[in-house]
């Protein structure tokens, strides 16, 4: 049994992990609110981001261009997925479309297995640097850089959504599709935009998790599920809610793993999902809503 002394360490691990879940959750929320679909290829975007970057780095490309190349590839794939599978079937019910994304996720995982094999890939980042010791907490550079990247990405998303007209259009479409259309906002373009943004954010999440947990072809499923839980915690309605949900989930998992046993990490996550769905189906943050009927 661990004492209270380890709490800061667990919190740090939790926040690192949680910040990655937060990015996946943002992808879920963007696509869900624009299209009504829960996109279960979200985790595969992360996996591809991680595997492609690791592969490019192996072949001698520097980390930064390798990352850009990987993100661009994942975005391109998302465009193909949205135009080819989602948009062309948009008359179908959301439930059908969710199954389309599950099918696409399985296909992507299968192809990844053929291309990358089953071995885990490493992404060597700051490996030679010793962890920092801050007030008894050991901070690895990988986790520090992950947090830094997440902060930058979250800020970028914030500025895009809040401080540009294109972001306003996307948010408008997320909140009220009919009114958005009457402002001339094309919902199909917004759907494509949501996929592109989610894919880019997902790929970045994958790249920053790779140095911490290794990259494997089948890492996407669990990331999808965790991102979904995080988004649900946040009420599935807004990007800030999703980010808060992700951080909370990461911390809960780390505490569960630290104090109960690492085997219980996922149990903690899914137990939280069940409790939230039973008690607060609108999400922990979704309660502050009131719409005129």
């Amino acid at each position: 049994m661990e004492g209270l002394a380890s709490l800061p360490q667990f919190l740090l691990v939790g926040l690192t992990l949680g910040s990655i879940y937060a990015l996946v959750a943002v992808g879920f929320v963007l696509i869900y609110n624009v299209t009504g679909i829960l996109n279960f290829t979200q985790g595969e975007f992360c996996m591809l981001g991680a595997m492609l970057t690791a592969t490019f780095v192996r072949s001698g490309i520097h980390l930064l261009p390798a990352s850009f190349l990987a993100v661009a590839t994942v975005v391109l794939l998302a465009v193909l997925l949205e135009r080819g599978a989602i948009s062309s079937a948009r008359k179908a019910t959301p439930l059908t479309l969710i199954f389309v994304t599950l099918g696409a996720a399985t296909a992507i995982r299968g192809i990844a297995l053929l291309i990358f094999g089953t071995e885990p890939y490493t992404l060597p980042v700051f490996q030679n640097l010793r962890p920092l010791q801050l007030a008894g907490v050991s901070v690895t550079w990988a986790s520090l850089s992950a947090l830094a990247v997440v902060v930058v990405v979250v800020l970028l998303i914030f500025f895009l959504l809040e401080r540009t007209m294109a972001g306003k259009a996307l948010r408008a479409c997320m909140i009220n599709k009919l009114a958005a259309q009457l402002m001339g906002i094309n919902p199909q373009r917004m759907s494509l935009l949501a996929f592109v943004l989610s894919a880019a954010v997902g790929a970045v999440a994958g790249i920053i998790i790779a140095p911490i947990t290794l990259a494997v072809y089948d890492m996407g499923l669990m990331l999808s599920l965790k991102g979904f839980i995080a988004a649900t915690l946040g009420g599935l309605a807004s990007a800030p809610g999703a980010i808060a949900g992700g951080l909370l989930l990461g911390v809960l998992e780390a505490l569960g793993a630290g104090y109960i046993g690492s085997g219980y990490k996922d149990v903690a996550a899914f137990a939280v999902l069940l409790v939230v769905l039973f008690v607060r189906p609108d999400g922990l943050i979704g309660a502050i809503r009131g719409e005129r009927v």
Binding site: M165, A166, I175, A179, M183
Partner: peptide, 23 residues
């Protein structure tokens, strides 16, 4: 209306067609 936006943001969203920058 766009319920989770401010009054100003609601009105700004109406300018969508008159602004140029794509996402």
């Amino acid at each position: 209306l766009f319920s989770r936006m401010t009054v100003l943001e609601n009105v700004m969203a109406g300018r969508h067609l008159r602004t140029a920058s794509g996402f």
